[in-house]
Structures are given as structure tokens and as C-alpha cells.
Computed example of a mutant assay.
Amino acid sequence: MVKIIAIYGSPRRDGNSAALLKQAVAGARQQGAEVEEVILRDYNMSPCLEIYQCIKTGECAIRDDFPKVLEKLEASDGIILASPIFFYTVSAHTKILMDRCQSLWVRKYWIEKQDFKNAPQTRKGVFISIGATTGKKLFDGALLTVKYFFDVLNAGLWKTVLCRGVDRKGEIDKRDDCLQEAFEAGRDLAIVLKDEKKIAE
């Protein structure tokens, strides 16, 4: 069975980006995928403290909930990450998770010495985001950050759902276009991952 991890990166448990992610989760489950939902605000995770113990072992030295989330990420076939935009990038909760994955970067590129240009992509990732403004470059910073976060997890940024002009809680309910796009992104991710598994078998 296809395993997908859905990461809620908003500081609001039931905000607009969460509503979009729930649609994506529903779409993936419609296609029979097993989806585990992770609400980052419910986990105790310190920011990266640059202890650099990971240089020796490839594992983070901080003892908190990060290994629980990492285990789920590494067990997944696909990742759906949702975060609102704050100052042209992802939320603090999301960025903490990303920064803690620096230990994976160290393991992958320093310890195992994998080739930057030829690292394998064993997963696919979807990024869902919402921003209050309508600027052309609203999502540029977040997309670059997410791309390289997915890279360290051997995931390609396969699809995005980016919704502009949504800010106050509940405003997403009026955006049927974004809600439908999110549902289809989750559904299509499950379909393509199932097809890849069949080919691999």
C-alpha cells in the first residue's frame, strides 16, 4: 500500500492551509493510500542548535520529538507539506522541521558522500501554501526552500497548490478552485505512487 505523510505546518490547527491539506488527504485516501497526518504544533521540536554531533553519526544530538517525525518521513512514499506564508517563506513550525533535517543533509552529502547532481529520488512531494497578498513572487522563497528540503528526503517537488489572496480564518471556504486543486493533487499523488509501485513489483 502507498504510504503518504501529510504535514500540517501552520500555527493554526484548523486554518486555511490545514483546510487545503485535508482536501489533499481526502483525495489520496480516495485512491486507497494510507495517509498519516502530522500536526507540527503538537510536537516538541527544538530549532537546530548547530551542535554538529551529526557530523560524526549522521544523527541529531537533540533529544525531543524530531526522531518521531523523521521516522514517519523516511517510511513514506510521498510527502504532502502545507504551510502558510510568513515573510515570503514557510511558517516557523515548518522551518524548524526543515532545519532539524540538516542532520540528514550531513549524512547524505558529508558522510555518505552522495553526488549532489545525481542523488536518487525515491519519493514525490506536494507543497500546499496560502498567502494573504497577490504578489507575483509571493511563493518564490518558500518554493526554493521546500525544493531543497524535499531533496534531502530524496523527494522531488512533484506538484504545488498555491493560493493567493487568502488570509483570515475561513476565507479558504470561498475558494472552491483551490480546494478542488488540493483534492486533485492528493488524489493524483496517490495514483502515480501506486503506478510506480506496480512497475517496481
Results as ranks from 00 to 15, higher is better:
residue 71 E to Y: 10
residue 89 T to L: 03
residue 128 I to L: 13
residue 180 Q to F: 03
residue 179 L to G: 03
residue 128 I to H: 06
residue 161 V to I: 05
residue 5 I to R: 03
residue 132 A to V: 01
residue 176 D to V: 09
residue 104 L to I: 14
residue 98 M to T: 09
residue 121 Q to H: 11
residue 90 V to G: 07
residue 10 S to H: 07
residue 113 K to V: 07
residue 137 K to Q: 15
residue 45 M to P: 06
residue 157 L to I: 06
residue 70 L to Y: 05
residue 136 K to R: 14
residue 55 I to T: 13
residue 158 W to V: 09
residue 58 G to M: 03
residue 184 E to F: 00
residue 55 I to W: 04
residue 167 D to S: 10
residue 82 A to E: 08
residue 41 R to F: 07
residue 164 R to D: 10
residue 129 S to H: 04
residue 149 F to L: 07
residue 128 I to P: 06
residue 179 L to P: 02
residue 38 V to Y: 06
residue 17 S to C: 13
residue 80 I to Q: 07
residue 72 K to Y: 01
residue 76 S to N: 09
residue 15 G to Q: 09
residue 186 G to M: 06
residue 80 I to F: 02
residue 89 T to W: 04
residue 57 T to K: 03
residue 134 T to K: 15
residue 63 R to Q: 15
residue 1 M to R: 08
residue 93 H to R: 10
residue 151 D to M: 12
residue 153 L to S: 04
residue 105 W to P: 14
residue 173 D to L: 15
residue 6 A to Y: 00
residue 55 I to P: 00
residue 184 E to M: 08
residue 28 A to F: 02
residue 53 Q to G: 15
residue 35 V to R: 09
residue 36 E to C: 02
residue 95 K to N: 08
residue 107 R to K: 15
residue 94 T to H: 09
residue 147 K to V: 00
residue 23 Q to I: 04
residue 105 W to A: 14
residue 84 P to D: 09
residue 140 D to R: 13
residue 169 K to F: 11
residue 108 K to D: 12
residue 5 I to P: 03
residue 19 A to D: 05
residue 89 T to I: 02
residue 122 T to E: 11
residue 166 V to Q: 08
residue 51 I to C: 14
residue 120 P to Q: 03
residue 87 F to G: 03
residue 191 I to C: 02
residue 182 A to K: 07
residue 32 G to P: 10
residue 11 P to H: 11
residue 86 F to C: 10
residue 92 A to R: 05
residue 11 P to D: 05
residue 37 E to F: 05
residue 145 T to N: 10
residue 132 A to E: 10
residue 77 D to I: 02
residue 100 R to I: 06
residue 101 C to N: 12
residue 115 D to F: 02
residue 145 T to K: 04
residue 74 E to I: 10
residue 144 L to M: 13
residue 196 E to Q: 13
residue 76 S to C: 12
residue 190 A to S: 13
residue 25 V to S: 05
residue 167 D to P: 00
residue 78 G to F: 01
residue 55 I to N: 11
residue 193 L to F: 01
residue 169 K to A: 12
residue 11 P to R: 10
residue 35 V to S: 02
residue 89 T to D: 12
residue 78 G to V: 04
residue 29 R to K: 15
residue 22 K to E: 15
residue 78 G to S: 04
residue 62 I to R: 15
residue 129 S to L: 00
residue 153 L to H: 11
residue 49 L to Y: 06
residue 110 W to F: 12
residue 164 R to A: 10
residue 37 E to N: 13
residue 107 R to I: 00
residue 57 T to N: 02
residue 104 L to Y: 06
residue 101 C to T: 14
residue 40 L to N: 06
residue 127 F to L: 13
residue 98 M to E: 12
residue 187 R to L: 06
residue 36 E to L: 10
residue 154 N to W: 07
residue 16 N to A: 07
residue 103 S to Q: 15
residue 199 I to A: 12
residue 36 E to N: 11
residue 132 A to T: 08
residue 83 S to K: 03
residue 1 M to P: 11
residue 103 S to E: 13
residue 162 L to N: 09
